[in-house]
């Protein structure tokens, strides 16, 4: 493909991929964070044990986590049409992306929150802290570093999913790779999209890790 056609194509691709990744990550956290907090609190060893509620949420998360993304995308097409008005394109892809990523994100957050030293939580309880105070003043701030690392990994995974969605009508770099590289044998386009995806992944990784390191107060300076 000539360069003057390739550049605008790739710019559009990057824009769409970033758009899907950022918006999906945002909504996945919007759903995943409360879910993770609920899992941590209601677990049998949590601050407000509710074994039944915990088991139901735990099972739902596992079910969604075990459906491969491409199949999930097909399964939720009716819902996607309902929300986005159509089942193809970048905006529509956000719906299955969020549904696939939210349980994943919930597990990532849950494991970060569980890393918080139980001694510090006990100290807060001994001062008369309420459960919301413990969550927002102790657990989340203390898990901050681990949460940022988790967010980095999660958005990387969502970036990967968004590229995969190109196979069945999603947008962005994944769709370019499949329609030009796979269907039309344009290997140069395929290679460029791969390189761009690698660069995007690196960018997310470097930015995320730098933020987590810079904000961690546990390290001696």
């Amino acid at each position: 493909m000539p360069i003057e056609k390739m550049v605008p194509l790739m710019i559009d691709g990057i824009r769409d991929t970033m758009y899907m990744t950022v918006v999906s990550t945002f909504f996945a956290y919007l759903l995943g964070l409360p879910l993770a907090i609920a899992l941590v609190l209601t677990s049998p060893k949590g601050l407000a044990p509710r074994p039944l509620i915990y088991r139901v949420m735990d099972a739902v998360v596992n079910i969604f986590r075990s459906i491969p993304f491409l199949i999930l995308m097909i399964l939720v097409i009716p819902l996607t049409r309902l929300i986005a008005g159509k089942a193809y394109g970048s905006t529509a892809t956000i719906v299955p992306l969020v549904i696939a990523a939210a349980p994943y994100v919930a597990r990532m957050i849950e494991s970060s929150l569980l890393e918080v030293d139980p001694g510090v939580i006990e100290a807060a309880q001994s001062m008369g802290a309420s459960i919301p105070q413990i969550v927002f003043k102790v657990i989340i701030p203390e898990a901050k570093t681990s949460l940022i690392v988790g967010a980095t990994i999660s958005s990387g995974t969502i970036l990967g999913y968004s590229a995969m969605s190109g196979a069945i009508g999603g947008g962005g770099l994944g769709q370019i790779a499949i329609s030009y590289g796979y269907n039309r044998y344009q290997t140069d386009v395929l290679l460029v999209t791969v390189i761009l995806l690698v660069i995007l992944m690196q960018l997310i990784q470097v930015v995320g890790m730098t933020i987590s390191r810079k904000t961690d107060k546990r390290v001696r300076e």
Partner: peptide, 16 residues
């Protein structure tokens, strides 16, 4: 509990 403070073997301070 605000009248009954507690200190611990491993201090249990907020690291952040």
């Amino acid at each position: 509990r605000q009248d009954v403070s507690m200190i611990f073997q491993h201090f249990n301070l907020l690291q952040q």
